[in-house]
Design a protein around this nucleic acid. Structure first.
Length: 526
RNA sequence: CGGGGUGUAGCGCAGCUUGGUAGCGCGCUUCGUUCGGGUCGAAGAGGUCAUGGGUUCGAAUCCCUUCACCCCGACCA
């Protein structure tokens, strides 16, 4: 896609071809052969050696820098390509929005230091803004979770759309915006001046937060919700994992991605009742009160990860780990301890903005592109170094940047259409001009044939509908396809000394002389 | 992984409840007609009813198997 290439070249990008068939070894050294186990399309050759189809190309670039980058004189570098990616998505959907095989423009930057990467990174983000602007796609750059890419920070380019798969947060007052998986927010609530005593109360048949709160007549924000997961760290087998006891204030929800990040990365699945009981907690009436809580993630005991919200408020209602009973008046840290206090709750509409205190709102959007500041995530694992001015080896700093082309095309169509079909923005239209002849007689056909040759000779991209069918059919099809300019050659126009021209995005038509058609595309209309 | 749905002509669907050997719209072919916003008419072509098995005199239809595709959900105690 020309726009992509121009913007990448403008910031020093070098286009190159990268393989789509990857030996397992390059994925094993970065640890992602296991981490991306569910995502990689794996296959074997006739000798039984493992390969994966390209799901992304950090590994290829990492391998490349191991071989090619020797000294600081070889840096910085930016390489990019447009190629196919294969991912075993659990559920492809939305037409072109989520595919198992898709086309991506991905770029990778290599720098000598964190400072150098920090300096380069904004130019890539700017290039992405340029790309989306030129495609007439209103994309927002928001802070996002780095996910399975690893690294430090990332900017996600998201296009607000009701059918989007992602939820993001934006402040209604300032310009704060972030993916829900990265969004921070202020926990409202105050601790009581004189905390009540811990008291056990009967709460028959109250297994959910809503039931308990209603039964005791307190707001859900005065309860603490307990959730259980089985956590498997990256690179470990599931049986080597352990139970995670999550705590969040009753009016909030746990965000699993935040929780996974707080634990250092891995996978979560809901815990089975037997696994919960094994640590002494009672499903339905569980809390950290009275449990042998680990004092830290490397200490013995039960892992209890609590959201910051348990400090915003007090005299909470919590489970008593006994069927049919809860405690009231529970306060942290007086009545229970936790292994880790972290931001693991999901931000939602109405919460206060972390930056200005205004209200934030949750909205849906489609992820159109993503920039990752990877840092030394890959170079450290593979010991990819260069020699600095003093002859000492230093780790290479990496960044990775991607835009899905199929998805971008779907977004463009989603944003630029009317009841009759697509309305392509000129910069991304498959053709510049849609030519057709209409009506009876040989003359329109002959004029159109000639015009087609002229326009092509003038270097224009022309789609010529030379079918011998009725005008209505041709007009409908032209609207559906949505080429920016339509040129109809017919008896009516010829009688007025020209051909009829119409822009797809405007209702007016106009007859212009045949020899002026080629100037339309760049010229003024009306 | 759990739940639900759908597989019948190139495409979209009806028929299935109440078994009797398949139909509609669009598209396609031919002829005529029309000719600047999906013209009209006539005549045609085209289907192992996803698959395998069972019940029956007889199965698209009832029962079971397998496969494929689509949708929803995935545990907040």
């Amino acid at each position: 896609w020309r726009i992509m290439a121009e913007e990448m070249d403008a910031i020093g990008g070098q286009e190159m071809w990268m393989p789509n068939l990857h030996p397992a070894a390059i994925w094993q050294v970065t640890g992602r052969w296991m981490i991306w186990n569910e995502v990689l399309m794996k296959l074997k050759d006739h000798n039984g050696r493992d390969y994966a189809l390209s799901a992304t190309h950090e590994e290829v670039v990492t391998d490349l820098m191991l071989r090619e980058v020797e000294s600081y004189r070889d840096l910085p570098r930016v390489v990019y390509h447009i190629s196919r990616k294969f991912r075993d998505e659990p559920r492809p959907r939305g037409g072109l929005l989520r595919l198992r095989e898709f086309v991506m423009k991905d770029a990778y930057s290599l720098d000598t230091s964190e400072a150098a990467l920090d300096e380069f990174y904004p130019s890539m983000v700017q290039a992405y803004h340029n790309i989306f602007r030129r495609c007439e796609v209103a994309a927002l750059a928001i802070n996002a979770d780095v996910g399975a890419m690893g690294g430090k920070t990332s900017q996600e380019f998201i296009v607000p759309h009701p059918q989007g798969e992602d939820t993001f947060i934006r402040c209604t007052n300032c310009d704060y915006a972030a993916n829900v998986e990265a969004a921070e927010f202020v926990r409202e609530g105050v601790k009581p001046d004189s905390p009540a005593a811990l008291t056990k109360v009967a709460t028959p048949n109250c297994q959910t937060i809503a039931e308990v709160a209603a039964y005791l007549g307190v707001p859900t924000s005065q309860t603490i919700k307990a959730v259980f997961y089985w956590f498997t760290p990256n690179g470990k087998a599931e049986k080597e994992g352990r139970l995670v006891f999550g705590l969040v204030r009753g009016d909030l929800e746990v965000n699993e991605v935040k929780l996974t990040n707080a634990l250092g990365g891995g996978t979560l699945r809901p815990a089975a009742d037997a696994e919960i009981s094994a640590v002494g907690a009672m499903p339905g009436y569980a809390s950290a009160v009275g449990l042998p809580v680990a004092r830290g993630l490397n200490q013995p005991g039960v892992w209890v990860i609590a959201d910051l919200s348990i400090e915003a408020g007090g005299d909470f209602v919590v489970g008593a780990n006994e069927e049919g009973y809860h405690f009231t008046g529970a306060n942290y840290p007086r009545d229970f301890s936790v292994s880790l206090l972290a931001d693991v709750a999901q931000a939602d509409t109405g919460h206060p903005c972390p930056r200005c205190g205004g209200r934030i709102e949750a909205r849906r959007g489609i992820e159109a592109g993503h920039c990752f500041k990877l840092g030394t995530r890959y170079s450290a694992m593979t010991n990819a170094t260069y020699l600095d001015e003093n002859g000492r080896p230093q780790l290479i700093y990496m960044g990775s940047y991607g835009i899905g082309l199929d998805r971008l095309m779907a977004i463009i169509v989603e944003l630029h259409h009317d009841e009759n079909g697509i309305v392509w923005p000129a910069a991304v239209a498959p053709y510049q001009l849609h030519l057709m002849h209409v009506g009876k007689g040989d003359e329109p056909r002959q004029v159109a044939d000639r015009l087609y040759e002229d326009l092509r000779a003038a270097g224009l991209e022309v789609l010529y509908d030379d079918r011998d069918t009725s005008p209505g059919v041709k007009f409908k099809d032209a609207d559906l396809i949505g080429i920016p300019w339509r040129v109809a050659v017919g008896a009516r126009g010829l009688a007025e000394g020209g051909v009829e021209v119409k822009r797809r995005d405007r209702p007016e038509r106009k007859v212009v002389p045949v020899d002026q058609v080629k100037e339309l595309v760049n010229g003024n209309w009306l």
